[in-house]
Amino acid sequence: MTTDSGTGQRRPVKTVETAVGILELIKGRDGATLPELTDELDMAKSTVHRHLKTLENLDFVVEGDDGYRIGLRTLDFGIYARDQQSVFHEGKDRVEELADETGEKVWLITHERGRSVHLFSATGARSVRTPAREGNQGYLHQLAAGKAILASFSEERVRSIADEYGLPAETEATITDRDKLFDELASIRERGVAFNRGESIPKLNAVGAPITDSDGEAIAAISVSGPSNRVKGTYLTEELPERLLGVTNEIEINLSYAES
């Protein structure tokens, strides 16, 4: 990134933006050909080809019979980035234990630049399949864990995130109104956990609790989710929150001593 000395605003380097855009398109399409990328990017074929060859030389993409795919070199970057997160190391075993205890899907989710990042998951014996996978970026307001994180932020910070990314709907139940979101966040602060009733995936309910630092701000959150016909009633509102809060409290204590 470069800086505009007159305004202090950050100006993007176009070639980097193009290269990242190519990687995102290839990932989003599960592989793409040069003509497909040229059409999507609305750029000259020769320009896209030069970017692809540069990325290929650096092992970020690989060309095969069906076009280009993401190269495994990117895996090294992803694993390295996750390994830098102390909450991953402290939370991994607890997430797996919680999945075994509940039989449900359990996620450890963190945040970066106002977006959610799915850091690690464990699958219980009764868990259902969902599109989410480790490494996914998303919108905090759509997730139980994400709302638990937002509830620890100042109102100013939440407004800034909403200004930058909006409050897009994933389902009909997603909160898209700012006033309703702030009311929801206030309730989360009172009870200590956040609920998701079909807000990210229809017929899927979840409960999330934050993992906070010494200042009370969430560095991550854990959620437990399952089908709404099973994860409901006091199981959703009382039993799971009690288990979840015990786990997050344990991780917070371990983190505080690990960093001292």
Rank of each mutant, 00 (worst) to 15 (best):
M1I: 14
S5W: 13
T7N: 02
T7G: 01
R11S: 11
P12N: 07
A19E: 09
A19V: 11
G21S: 08
I26G: 10
G31K: 04
G31P: 10
P35E: 10
P35R: 07
E36I: 04
E36L: 14
T38M: 02
T38S: 03
E40K: 10
M43G: 12
A44T: 04
S46M: 10
R50A: 14
K53A: 12
T54E: 09
L55F: 05
N57H: 13
L58Q: 07
L58T: 11
D59F: 13
D59M: 03
V61W: 08
V62G: 03
E63C: 03
D66W: 07
G67P: 05
G67F: 06
Y68F: 15
T74I: 10
T74N: 03
L75Q: 09
D76A: 13
G78N: 06
G78T: 00
I79M: 12
D83W: 06
D83E: 08
S86A: 12
S86V: 07
V87R: 02
H89F: 10
K92T: 07
R94D: 13
V95D: 15
E96Q: 15
E96S: 10
D100C: 06
E101M: 11
L108M: 03
I109P: 01
E112L: 15
G114S: 06
R115S: 14
R115D: 06
H118R: 14
H118G: 04
H118S: 09
L119V: 13
F120K: 08
F120H: 13
S121F: 09
S121Q: 12
S121D: 14
A122T: 03
A122M: 02
R126D: 11
R129C: 07
R129W: 09
R129M: 09
A132H: 12
R133E: 09
R133W: 11
R133L: 14
G135M: 05
Q137G: 08
Q137S: 15
Y139K: 06
Y139S: 07
L140F: 04
A144D: 09
A144V: 04
A145I: 04
G146Y: 01
K147S: 00
A148C: 02
A148I: 01
I149W: 02
L150I: 13
S152W: 00
F153K: 12
E155F: 04
E156Q: 09
R157G: 06
R159G: 15
I161W: 03
Y165T: 03
G166R: 02
A169F: 05
T171Y: 00
A173R: 15
A173S: 08
T174H: 04
R178V: 04
K180T: 11
E184I: 01
E184Y: 02
L185Y: 11
A186G: 04
S187R: 15
A194K: 13
A194D: 12
F195E: 07
F195H: 12
G198A: 02
E199D: 06
P202S: 06
K203A: 15
L204G: 03
A209R: 12
A209T: 05
P210H: 08
P210N: 13
I211A: 03
D213F: 04
E217K: 14
V224N: 02
P227L: 14
N229G: 07
N229A: 08
K232L: 14
G233Q: 03
T234V: 12
T234L: 14
Y235A: 02
T237D: 11
E239P: 02
L240H: 05
L240N: 03
P241I: 07
R243I: 01
V247T: 13
I251V: 06
E252K: 05
L255V: 06
Y257Q: 10
A258F: 10
